[in-house]
């Protein structure tokens, strides 16, 4: 049963990679990378069940955190050209 889920995830991974290669803008590629990250997270959890090694769930958790931080970091770099930019603080509501 886990093998069926894993195969479906691999298919989704391949399709997301197609978008990452085609994607005309950088945002398309980032969205594809984000999807690849989510699918990889699920894949890690699946692998843990498939091999009977639940430690893989910790890896999935860390991978998810890195995925979010990575997306935001690349986005910020493309938006402001600097990772240390304060960003949106000027328009914060009082």
């Amino acid at each position: 049963m886990f093998a069926a889920g894993a195969i479906a995830l691999l298919l989704a991974l391949a399709l997301a990679l197609v978008r990452a290669i085609l994607g005309p803008t950088v945002f398309d590629r980032l969205q594809a990378a984000n999807t690849v990250g989510t699918v990889a997270m699920m894949m890690l959890a699946m692998l843990g069940f498939l091999n009977g090694r639940p430690e893989f769930l910790d890896l999935a958790l860390v991978y998810g955190l890195l995925n979010i931080v990575g997306t935001i970091a690349v986005l910020k770099y493309f938006r402001h050209g600097d990772l240390g930019d304060p960003g949106e603080h000027v328009e914060k509501q009082p």
Partner: peptide, 11 residues
């Protein structure tokens, strides 16, 4: 798994 593939197809 099917929904994951559908989402990727949509992508």
């Amino acid at each position: 798994g099917i929904f994951c593939v559908i989402g990727a197809i949509g992508l």
